[in-house]
């Protein structure tokens, strides 16, 4: 299992579904829900200020694009501006129900984005992720 997976998603139903799905599929040990980009940034800011705090760096982040207060693209931009080194350590997968082809293109172009997945996130997609080199070791036992 992946130790820590963060989901930045404003829709609480979706968050709930993630939680159930991850549990059902034994995808992660620790699920960190964050409801928008600003809160996610705050999370990382706190971590950077006080590393002794319990805040931990997630091994995988699912990032939604359309969110109130701060959207996905804005979050990435802010992170790049303020904590670029931290950003490079993060494995970010954009997960969106956007049908605008522009978003897909942007995701492909963005060097901090690992992948773009369409909602809803389903079992098959998780299984595919488990096969990825980055996460493979977590599921080897």
């Amino acid at each position: 299992m992946i130790p820590n997976v963060m989901c930045i998603e404003d829709d609480t139903t979706t968050l709930m579904l993630f939680e159930f799905l991850f549990k059902d599929e034994n995808f992660c040990q620790n699920f960190i829900p964050v409801e928008n980009g600003q809160l996610a940034f705050d999370y990382f800011e706190t971590y950077m200020k006080n590393k002794a705090d319990q805040k931990i760096i997630p091994n995988l982040i699912f990032l939604d694009l359309n969110m109130p207060v701060m959207g996905g693209w804005e979050f990435l931009e802010t992170m790049e501006n303020i904590f670029p080194d931290l950003l490079t350590q993060l494995n970010i997968i954009v997960l969106s129900s956007s049908v605008n082809p522009k978003d897909q293109d942007l995701a492909k172009e963005n060097k901090f984005v690992m992948d773009f997945l369409d909602k809803p996130l389903v079992k098959d997609q998780l299984n595919a992720l488990k096969q990825k080199a980055v996460f493979k070791d977590y599921f080897s036992s």
């Binding site: 979706t14 605008n100 809803p120």
Partner: peptide
């Protein structure tokens, strides 16, 4: 239409997700 479809899809995907689970 993007926004509409997104906004439509967002709850729809939840519905689909719910039915899967």
């Amino acid at each position: 239409s993007y926004i509409t479809s997104h906004n439509l899809r967002a709850p729809l995907t939840n519905l689909i997700g719910i039915h899967q689970l």
